Amino acid sequence: MNDSVGFWKRFFAGFLDVLIISLPLSLIFSWITGDWENEDFSTILNLLYMLIVPIVWYGYTVGKRIMGIRIVRVDGRKLGIGTMLLRTFVAGIVYVLTLGIGYIVSAFMVGMRKDHRSIHDFIAGTYVTSEKP
């Protein structure tokens, strides 16, 4: 796990995912429905993107692929739906229940821990690496 990736690469990968995937999805569905305030459908698609794409694309999302990083399991096994559900939904619940404080703590963990693992990495048994599949 000595090739784990720190805060800035992860941050920019997330930013690229928003810029390339999330924002266009929101704009497209807002334009199609004519409802610029209700983003339920695009939110569901974004969650499915974050959940499924890393499973079928060796831990990559579009942003992570551009940044040359990917999600992997600590035990070396292939990512599965259970792992990504833990990483996405269970961690999301933790972040909501702590009113965002958990998210801030996670950012500090990624920036300051030697292994760069966040709360959602610990919950799911994952880390982010620059190692190729």
Rank of each mutant, 00 (worst) to 15 (best):
I81V: 15
G102A: 10
F12W: 15
I101H: 05
G59S: 06
I93W: 08
S30Y: 03
V56I: 15
R73A: 01
G111E: 04
R10G: 06
Y49M: 04
L48A: 15
K9G: 07
S42G: 06
M67R: 02
S130M: 07
F7H: 04
N2F: 14
S30C: 08
E131S: 15
G125K: 04
L47Y: 12
L25S: 02
V53C: 05
S22W: 09
R70V: 02
F11L: 12
M112Q: 14
I66P: 00
V53H: 04
H116L: 04
V110N: 00
V110T: 08
K64S: 06
I104C: 03
G68D: 06
A107W: 04
L51N: 00
D115G: 07
P133L: 03
D3M: 09
G59T: 00
T98G: 09
S118C: 15
S26I: 14
M1E: 12
V5C: 02
P133V: 08
R87C: 02
I71P: 00
V72G: 05
A124K: 03
W8M: 08
R73M: 04
G14D: 11
Y49L: 00
I55R: 08
A124T: 06
F122I: 11
G6P: 06
D115T: 10
L86G: 11
K9H: 09
L19G: 11
S4Q: 07
V53T: 12
S4T: 11
V105E: 09
S4M: 07
D3N: 15
F41E: 03
I55L: 06
F108A: 10
D75I: 03
V62M: 09
I81S: 11
M67T: 06
D35N: 15
M112R: 14
R10S: 02
V18M: 12
I93N: 08
G80L: 06
V110Y: 02
D75E: 06
F41N: 07
R117C: 00
V18F: 15
K132N: 14
I28P: 07
D17L: 04
G59A: 05
T83Y: 08
S106C: 06
L45T: 04
M109D: 05
T88A: 09
M112S: 13
